[in-house]
Design a protein around this nucleic acid. Structure first.
Lengths: 107, 107
DNA sequence: ACGGAATATTCCGTTAGGAGTATATTTGAT
DNA sequence: ATCAAATATACTCCTAACGGAATATTCCGT
């Protein structure tokens, strides 16, 4: 999960992901469309690959990168644990303040 | 969105978020429970705050930090654009390979 | 007003990561 | 076998960010 978030938390990599939503692309094409240098693209693709965001298909000279959505699904599942929270969360802050005062008295 | 992801993509901050799920806590309590030094906790809370993940309630000497789920909701909404993709995505890779060969012939 | 506790901020050293350039590697074409 | 194109890797530089220690700040109790 940390790897996934780290991969996403970088503008250029996020751009690549957005771009690959429209379909697979070669390294050179990505570099052209995003106006990045080829080495940077390769490096970012490496990170994305290690986080599971892309898969590679060699085609002769080139390598075609295709988006994988599994990491995003994982992120979605991770969010599950919070979904109930942003729906029926009751205000615990007031309770906590009282609890804190109780502790004070004990000392 | 970048701020949100950046805030999440850090182990300690993620730990703080997990911890705050159980309820609001003071800085000192967070430091104790996670075995972190107080200044680091304050710094991480600063980042979390700027990303909208926490709100603060001063109580005398202390400051009680409470989790906000809005950024997570934002993340959830951002994921929407991919949800259809990981359901009914058709294989475009083969098509692309053919398309690539067409381009070759043109040159 | 003073002192202590809780927290925020600052300064510093160290490290991780991104960008640029050059180079290695692979592949197809001739 | 050689060459050019596409890509990956290595090296260097530079900046951002984390961690630690010290200090500033705020607040309450006395």
């Amino acid at each position: 999960m940390e790897k996934i978030l780290n991969a996403l938390a970088e503008t250029k990599r996020m751009d690549i992901i957005k771009l690959l939503r429209e379909g697979p692309l070669t390294v050179g094409e990505i570099a052209d469309k995003l106006e990045l240098r080829q080495p940077q693209v390769s490096k970012h693709l490496r990170v994305l690959n290690e986080a599971g965001f892309v898969e590679v298909q060699p085609a002769a000279n080139r390598r075609i990168y295709k988006l994988r959505t599994e990491p995003l699904q994982e992120l979605d599942e991770w969010l599950d644990q919070f979904r109930h929270t942003w729906e029926d969360r009751f205000e615990r802050l007031d309770d906590y303040l009282i609890e804190l005062q109780e502790k004070e008295k004990e000392d």
